[in-house]
């Protein structure tokens, strides 16, 4: 929305940032999914060059040279991670880089680089126009200003809302028409899945942090399915560079799917907790460090739902293994059915 409605302000913010740090070049990294915006954004840039708001000696000020170009990405979640974004800009695989050095030390092509998101840069012209006091007058202590929330899911009024930092989640839900939500995902897939007992908490950096994504889930939704969908997402979006994220997310998802299929056992909850913690602790970048959150936060906030699915069976047998599926390939090779398991084991 900022790109379509306030592109000019974004580029102004970038130019000011360039001036502040003494940079000569700015890059707008545009995901492949937004390729349709490119022509429009190029037009805005052309206009700014024409008006001497970009290029050499901006507004006649000698030495204030600043160019902006648009870098198209191929569409990968991990390229939202700042060092992966830089790799992608450099024409490399969208893998995160080793830190240190941090981008501010050695970033794009080895040069000091600041990476900020569109919303932050759009705030810059407003702060300069209206003064920091006005900006600071909005929001809550530690989280100045306003925040754009993209609210979706089971709600009667989905959309993009600008709210003041510090707003309680209940108010957000009321705004969007989601008062009956049984669960809310705050902060996108890498955020947290919370339940009604936490709805009084506030949207701000110190409490419920979010890049802007709020997803609401109404009655009838299964939080395990929600978590599973997000794990699918992370398995798909991991760059595969480091072991815990590449392998751990698959293991987490497989076990969650087993639980969902009714083949769980009580020990599975500790298994998920342990594995999730390792992925969180040992992963190399922010993606992996947060990829276990769908499971870890749903496990913390919706534990009874998990417990219900992993109850010990009365007879002491919790079948986690499908023997028919296991022998089917061998049967195919042998050309006849298993002598020992000719048909499914008697259903309990």
């Amino acid at each position: 929305m900022l790109l379509t409605e306030r592109a000019d302000r974004l580029f102004a913010g970038m130019t000011i940032a360039g001036y502040a740090i003494g940079a000569a070049e700015g890059i707008l990294y545009l995901r492949g999914e937004y390729a349709y915006l490119r022509a429009f954004l190029e037009d805005v840039l052309t206009t700014r060059y024409r008006d001497h708001l970009l290029g050499a000696a901006i507004l006649g000020k000698t030495g204030f040279d600043f160019d902006i170009r648009i870098q198209m990405g191929a569409g990968a979640y991990v390229c939202g991670e700042e060092t992966a974004l830089i790799s992608s800009c450099e024409g490399l695989r969208g893998d995160p880089k080793t830190r240190p050095p941090f981008p501010a030390q050695k970033g794009y092509l080895g040069l000091p680089t600041v990476v900020n998101n569109v919303e932050t840069l759009c705030c810059v012209p407003k702060i300069l126009e209206e003064g920091p006091a006005t900006f600071g007058g909005h929001g809550s202590p530690g989280s100045s200003g306003t925040k754009l929330l993209s609210i979706s899911g089971d709600c009667s009024r989905p959309g993009i809302y600008e709210v003041e930092f510090g707003i309680p989640l209940t108010e957000v839900l009321t705004l969007a028409g989601a008062d009956d939500a049984i669960a809310v995902q705050v902060g996108g897939p890498s955020g947290q899945l919370i339940g009604p007992k936490d709805y009084a908490r506030k949207i701000c950096f110190d409490d419920l942090a979010t890049g802007g994504s709020i997803m609401t889930f109404g009655p009838g939704r299964d939080v395990l399915k929600t978590a599973a969908c997000f794990m699918d997402f992370f398995v798909d979006e991991s760059c595969g560079y480091c072991t815990p994220c590449r392998v751990g997310n698959v293991l987490l998802k497989d076990r969650l799917e087993r639980i969902r299929a009714g083949r769980g056992e009580p020990g599975d909850l500790d298994y998920l907790q342990r594995l999730g913690t390792t992925v969180k602790t040992a992963s190399r970048c922010g993606l992996g460090q947060t990829s276990a959150n769908p499971i870890l936060t749903s496990l913390a906030n919706f534990r009874p739902r998990y417990e219900e699915m992993v109850k010990a069976h009365q007879d002491g047998f919790n079948p986690s293994f499908d023997v028919r599926a296991a022998v089917s390939e061998a049967e195919g090779i042998a050309g006849h059915s298993s002598v020992i398991y000719p048909q499914p084991i008697e259903e309990r």
Binding site: Q314, D315, G316, F317, I340, I345, E346, R348
Partner: peptide
């Protein structure tokens, strides 16, 4: 020997585990 509840239904699996000796 595992002490199982009285309601236990025993699933008899042929001695498949010892592949070499079945």
């Amino acid at each position: 020997d595992l002490a199982l509840p009285a309601s236990t239904k025993k699933i008899v699996i042929d001695p498949v585990t010892r592949v070499e000796g079945h």
